[in-house]
């Protein structure tokens, strides 16, 4: 929902409750991203590391890695999307319940990376859906997804 400042001023004059609820929902949503993981080899390992003791994604409350797409909020694409995998990813994305977001993690997901010229790899996750946050790196450090998710948090709070 796009409520810009101008609208918010009008709403604030007439019906302040609407804006507060929006804020409450965005507060809840932005603090409880449950990731649905997708990946191939190296970035997912870093993602697992981010759930482990030294990095601990649980501090932000994002540690609930769901296996079922219906219950997840953020699709973390951590690997190249191959042409064969494309229908599966699209299906999983369609299965997720709104509100949902996509985070492209690692250079293969951002742009296709070294495989960008290959016949079987899509040049980036944004060829099939709108990506909210790009996290470049090859592979990314375990802290980088934290930064990406915190950026996403800022974005969701402003929604």
């Amino acid at each position: 929902m796009a409520v810009n400042n101008h609208d918010e001023e009008i709403l604030a004059k007439n019906n302040i409750i609407v804006t507060t609820f929006e804020k409450l929902w965005n507060w809840g949503r932005s603090r409880s991203f449950w990731p649905l993981s997708y990946g191939c080899n190296c970035c997912p390992i870093e993602m697992m590391a981010s759930g482990a003791a030294r990095f601990d994604i649980a501090r932000y409350g994002y540690e609930v890695f769901r296996a079922a797409s219906r219950q997840a909020d953020v699709l973390v694409v951590a690997g190249p999307i191959t042409a064969k995998m494309k229908p599966a990813v699209e299906r999983v994305w369609a299965q997720m319940a709104e509100p949902k977001w996509v985070v492209a993690m690692g250079n293969c997901a951002v742009s296709g990376g070294p495989f960008v010229d290959g016949y079987s790899v899509l040049p980036g996750a944004d060829t099939i859906f709108h990506v909210d946050v790009y996290i470049p790196g090859c592979p990314v450090r375990p802290e980088a997804p934290f930064q990406g998710l915190l950026e996403l948090k800022k974005k969701v709070e402003k929604q």
């Binding site: 946050v133 790009y134 470049p136 974005k155």
Partner: peptide, 12 residues
């Protein structure tokens, strides 16, 4: 510096 996350591909 590993904090490179961006909202757009152009910004990378």
């Amino acid at each position: 510096n590993f904090e490179l996350a961006a909202y757009d591909r152009e910004n990378i």
